[in-house]
Design a binder for these strands. Sequence first.
DNA 1: ATCACTATTGCGACTCACTCTCAATTATTG
DNA 2: CAATAATTGAGAGTGAGTCGCAATAGTGAT
Lengths: 153, 153
Amino acid sequence: MPGDEKTQEAGGMTDNLEKKLEELCKEKGMRVTEQRRIILKILSDSPDHPNAEELHRRVVRLAPSISIATVYRTMNTLESYGLIERHIFADGRARYEAGGSEHHDHLVNVETDEIIEFRCDEIEELQKKIADEHGFDIVGHRFEIYVRAKKRR
Amino acid sequence: MPGDEKTQEAGGMTDNLEKKLEELCKEKGMRVTEQRRIILKILSDSPDHPNAEELHRRVVRLAPSISIATVYRTMNTLESYGLIERHIFADGRARYEAGGSEHHDHLVNVETDEIIEFRCDEIEELQKKIADEHGFDIVGHRFEIYVRAKKRR
DNA sequence: ATCACTATTGCGACTCACTCTCAATTATTG
DNA sequence: CAATAATTGAGAGTGAGTCGCAATAGTGAT
């Protein structure tokens, strides 16, 4: 089905990110290793926000010799160049998300551990206002709402 | 200066919290130990949000034999009964705050590590709305804005 | 294709914040 | 004051993540 640009299925974002990885590496004199390519691909195919262990579990299915240390290292370098995002929710462990999507915050379902992304421009605005009123510039923020399914009645 | 109820200086909240500690202990069959009293007093006299190590440092000045394990344990039990609050900001370590003050979120000055509390009812409302729209009840939230002093120009 | 160069990897040792175990201590109740 | 059991201090243990190092493998030049 050539020319069918609308498909967003498996591997959707991947090519895009793989290209970015290559650019980044060239630019920074880093190497495009199998490990980096695979780890980034698997992360970008993950619709959830896996932690290092879970990500490693998925990576190993495809390339058994990749160590978890490499997963950690890859997340660190790629995060520092903005290719992926790291979040730390209430359980204290880092979870990762392929970059590229527009900014959003998270609902965390405490019963299922599921993460739901949301975006609220009013809140973004209010933040800016608050920081501004206190004489600050914003360098970042963290916003999570911990929730559970509404009790029907 | 008897009758001068306005003074909010050293020990302001303390008597209040010490009473709560005693009530809590009686109610739960826990003991009102020197350690608990001192740790809670020192925390409630701390205008900042010390982590366990810093809190322990302050505690030890008054009672050198109190161990850091006891600080951790005390924070855990008191938090579980709502007498204090635990926050984990970007550095990943727990920081503590004596309870009793009304709900607020935090600005974190990334340059000085200073914590500034703020409260924004609009944001609280928006949160509820967001959770509601997704079919959830809120069980908690975390909201921090990381900032730095505005660059004057 | 081969080489030289050096970034990256896998491994296991290590760190750091925090928790647990356990014998000794001490608050509480009678 | 004695009996009871919660609490403590000390140090060992835990778990996520980092680090040092020898072996491996991208990369650009030949």
